[in-house]
Structures are given as C-alpha cells and as structure tokens.
Write a protein that binds this DNA or RNA. Structure first.
Length: 436
RNA sequence: GUGGGUGUAGCUCAGUUGGCAGAGCAUCUGGUUGUGGCCCAGAAGGCCGCCGGUUCAAGCCCGGUCACUCACCCCA
C-alpha cells in the first residue's frame, strides 16, 4: 500500500490541544469582529488569476513567484487566493454592495495559498481571519482597526514579545513624486549600482530597495524614506494616525511590558494596493507578522466599483494560535458507559439529553466491551466524570456517577416514575459535577 | 529562490573502526469474568525516508532524491 502524505507546506490540526486552540482563536476573533458590527462573509478560494495580479501588483513577490496558478478544463487562468482582500473587494463590487454613501464592515475566515519555502509560522496553505471597512476615510477609522487588532492580541492573551509597527506608504501622488526623486538619485549613481538595479530604476523604481547587493543597500541608506516625503494631505493624515494609534492602544499594549509601538519606514511594500497608513503586529517567535493591514483607497475603483475608500487587516491563524496562552482541551466533561442490560434508550434520551441541554458536553460509549477497558478509555481522554449503567443499576433504579479523579462513586436515584423525577435527577448530577 | 541541520518502532531518541535492529514511554494480553490510574509477568510493533553506488557485508561510507526543520528573502 502506498503511503499518502500531506503535500509540502500544509498542516493538519488533529490533536485535542491544537484543535482547541484553533477553535478558541477563531471564536474570539470572530466575536470581536461581531462586537464592532462586522458581518461575516463567505467567499471563494479560487478567483481569476488576473484579479490578484491587478490588485496586489504584477511585480510583487506574492504574484510573480508565490501564487498557485492553474488552468481549468476550459482553459481559464485561475488562482488559489494568496490573500483575502482582493476577493472581498471583488465580491462587494460584483454584488453591488457599495452603491451610494455606504458604510460596510465585513469579515472573513479561510485558507490562503502561497508557494513559499515552508518554515516556522509559514505554510503554503495558511488561514487568515480578516476584516474590511468600506466607506469612512478618516484617520479615526484607521485608528479603530488598529485598536481592534491590538484588542485581538489581548483577547488571545498573546504571549511573548510583540511589536506594533506603523507607517504610511502615501497616496498615488506621493508615490509618483517620490519615485521621481528616487529615480533622479539613482541616475546620478547609476555606475555604482548593480545591473538589476539599473533595470529596476526605470521599470520598477521603488523595488531597488529590495536589492540583495550590499553595495546598493549602502547607497540607499542615504535616501529619505517615503514616509518623510508625503504630500501635505497624506502627511497630516499620517500624523493624526500615528498620534491616535499611540493614544488609543497605549492602555492595552501597556499591560504587556514586551508590547512596543514603533514607526517603521520600510513597512509593507509587498502589496501595491495600500495607499496610506499601514500597520503590522509582529512577533519574532510566531515567525513574523501576526496581523497586518492598512488603507487602500483606490482598490475598489480599480476593480470596477464606485470610488470607495477602504481599510482592513488580516490575522495569520497559525501564528496567532502559536502565541495563544491557552492550556485547555476540548474533551468531554462527562463520559457515559453502557453495560449489558442497561436501559440505553432511556439513559441516552433522558439523562444525556438533559445534561446536554444544560451545557454539559457528554460522550457516550455504546460498544459492548468490558467496563475496565471503557474506564481506561475515559481515563485516557482525561474525562473527569463517568456515568456507569448496566443490569444491576437498572434493577436498583439508580445510575452510578463516578469521579475519575479520586475514584469515588455516587448512586443517583433515577426516580423514573415520579412526575418531577427527571428534572430532579439532572439537577442532582449537575450539582455533583460542579456545573451548578 | 539561496544556505545550514535532521530523517531508525505510535512518540522521544541510542546505535562503537562498516559485522544478528535497540532503550524509555505509549500500545496489547494476562495477573483482576462489572471498575481506570499503581505494581508484576509477557507479547506485539521496523523496506533504518526513498532510489542508486562502493563492499564478502551498509542504519553507518558515496551520489541523487523526497520530506521535516532553522536562517535569508519575502510575508499572515
């Protein structure tokens, strides 16, 4: 028999611990979104490849070397989405959700795909929880989404060193002027630059900053970053943002002495659609950025929608889960062991059903194997309480409630015939297992 | 895409100058017919990642390949 293995760079979440972490992370962040008025959306994993090359940028690493592209049976060029924003915008535009003076807040969760070399906190299929706001174009909105991101980290009780990095990449005008300035500088130094940079300076000027040649990097250190060359409008927007972020997040970040806020001049060059303030929450131990996002005012129009300002962010679920200070597991609280001659149907419907209605998670073991084995299974699952019922118990009109911690056993009178017998019995069990 | 480390039982790992494939934990069986954990006795479990080469002989040496892992780049 052939051994099947997961494809490179993907991850199975199957253990109690990891599954519990994941569901807790997803639950907490989704309820945070909900508490801020975001609506959940469910959008496709496959899109036309062009959607991403047009929005993220043809020349970015994500599109040029990391995207999963394939042709379907009719020869359409499709791609597995490498990020969430482009698809959300496409869906909002296509479904005419952004007509008029609108405010839309939406969230999403799902897998993203990038063909990269796997390493700590980096997978080829990874999951993102993200949110997008359409409409408001005020620094206050940008500040709110950063605050939400910081609150998400706090809700996850994120452990270790965290850095909130902020920056502004500027509007198209800023970028154009800055590009001209940089190009002028490069022309003067052209003879000292590597061949690649000589090509880049005309084709994709700002990409020279990604050059790997240390001699080029030396020279670029003298160039003032874009954030210091913003137009008046972008500059005042950026200043309001920086001040507001510091003010609004200080309380929460202050709770963790290892949570720092800094301005990073070289933040977020990877996606072309950003137009203003951007931010990132980084954790070295999680493998890099845990949350990243920013403003993208031109994307909606660029993808055929009405001119709608927007901003948002995405969280890497694997990275967030790795920081999550969570110890629990999603094991059942109570385990029901049936023995030969037990009143199975009654027990299952009345007792187990009643306990479940009261929020207790109950697992039933109905296989006909020796009690000892069943107890061993329950013990291995780390269950605290078991109910045992068989012929003897049925005869006596009881069921046995056993504590696996100290081994004690309590007989619970089933009181099947009495009018209020069932409710009383359920209450007694709840009380004994400490659920009331 | 570039560079380093590692692949041996379910898990964590030993394995000598190349000479019969090992331990601990976990599992299963029995001691104990309907009471788990502790203890005792026993059992099972392996294409030594895969392909090729050198050799009388390869887990060990050589080449390739795949996977995992770490760093760079980039990113969530």
């Amino acid at each position: 028999m052939k051994d099947f293995k997961a494809v490179r760079g993907v991850k199975d979440i199957v253990t109690y611990e990891e599954a519990a972490k994941w569901s807790a992370v997803i639950k907490k962040v989704e309820s945070l979104f909900e508490s801020y008025g975001y609506r959940k959306t469910f959008i496709p994993v496959i899109e036309h490849a062009e959607l991403f090359s047009r929005s993220i940028g043809e020349e970015t690493d994500i599109v040029s070397k990391e995207m999963y592209i394939f042709k379907d049976r009719k020869g359409r060029e499709l791609a597995l989405r490498p990020e969430g924003t482009a698809g959300v915008v496409r869906a909002m535009v296509e479904n005419k959700m952004l007509q008029g003076n609108i405010r839309e807040k939406v969230s999403y969760f799902g897998p993203m795909f990038r063909y990269e070399r796997p390493q700590a906190g980096r997978y080829r299929q990874f999951y993102q929880l993200g949110c997008e706001v359409f409409g408001p174009a005020s620094p206050m909105q940008d500040i709110e989404i950063v605050k939400m991101a910081v609150e998400a980290m706090s809700a996850l009780n994120a452990q270790g060193c965290l850095t909130l990095k902020i920056n502004s990449v500027g509007c198209d005008d800023c970028k154009k002027k800055y590009t001209q300035k940089v190009r002028k500088f490069l022309k003067e130094k052209a003879k000292d630059l590597c061949g690649d940079c000589n090509i880049r300076m005309d084709a994709n000027t700002l990409r020279v900053f990604d050059c790997k040649e240390s001699s080029c990097q030396e020279l670029y250190r003298d160039i003032e970053p874009l954030s210091k060359n913003l137009c008046g409008k972008c500059d005042s927007y950026w200043k309001a943002y920086a001040e507001g972020v510091n003010k609004e997040t200080r309380y929460i970040t202050g709770l963790n002495p290892d949570f720092k806020i800094i301005t990073d001049d070289y933040l977020v060059r990877g996606l072309d659609y950003y137009t203003g303030p951007v931010f990132e929450i980084e954790s070295k131990s999680a493998g890099g950025a845990v949350i990243a996002g920013g403003r993208y005012d031109k994307l909606v129009k660029q993808l055929g929608g009405p001119d709608t300002p927007a901003c948002g962010w995405a969280m890497g679920v694997e990275r967030a889960a790795s920081l999550y200070g969570y110890k629990g597991t999603n094991i059942p609280e109570l385990y029901v062991i049936y023995l030969k001659g037990a009143d199975e149907r009654w027990l299952s419907e009345t007792v187990v059903g009643g306990l479940r209605d009261n929020g207790v998670s109950v697992e039933e073991d109905k296989e006909d194997i020796p009690v000892g084995k069943k107890l061993k299974i329950a013990d291995r699952k780390n269950v605290n309480w078991v109910i045992i019922m068989g012929e003897e118990e049925k005869k006596k009109g009881i069921l046995v409630l056993k504590n696996l911690g100290d081994g004690s056993q309590i007989d619970i009178n089933t009181g099947k015939c009495a009018e209020d017998g069932t409710g009383k019995m359920i209450r007694e069990i709840l009380e004994k297992i400490g659920k009331r």
